Simulated assay, not measured.
Amino acid sequence: MIVQVSESKAALEASIKQMEQVTNPGGNFAIDRVKDLRAVRGVQAVTEDRDPNGNLNKQGGYTATVYLASTLVDQESVFGRDLVDKGTEAGGAIEVYKTIDDAEARNTYLAAFDGGVLSSGSHSVVGTVVIRTSDELTASQQAKLEAAIRNALARLE
Rank of each mutant, 00 (worst) to 15 (best):
V22R: 12
S6V: 06
Y109F: 09
E95A: 14
V130L: 05
R155N: 13
G42R: 10
A45W: 09
K35M: 10
F29P: 05
R106S: 05
V3C: 00
Q44M: 15
V129E: 05
G80S: 08
R106Q: 12
Y62L: 04
R38D: 15
T108M: 10
E89L: 03
F29Q: 10
L68S: 03
A152Y: 03
A139H: 10
M19D: 14
K58C: 02
S119T: 05
V130S: 11
Y109W: 04
A139M: 09
L37R: 07
K9I: 06
I149P: 11
V117H: 03
P25C: 01
G87Y: 00
P25K: 00
E89K: 04
G54P: 05
G54S: 07
A103G: 12
G26L: 00
Q4N: 07
V130W: 03
A90P: 12
E13W: 05
I94L: 10
E89N: 01
Q59C: 01
E7R: 08
T47M: 14
L110S: 07
T138C: 02
V84I: 15
L83T: 00
S122M: 02
R50K: 15
G61Q: 09
N55A: 13
A93N: 08
T88E: 07
K86S: 08
V84M: 08
Q142R: 13
G61R: 08
K144G: 05
T23D: 06
T65D: 10
E20G: 11
T128Y: 09
S119C: 01
Q44T: 13
V5E: 04
A152Q: 08
D85Q: 15
P25E: 05
S70D: 06
M1D: 09
E89M: 01
A148L: 06
V34Y: 08
K86Q: 07
V43K: 02
Q141M: 06
V22M: 11
I94H: 06
Q4H: 09
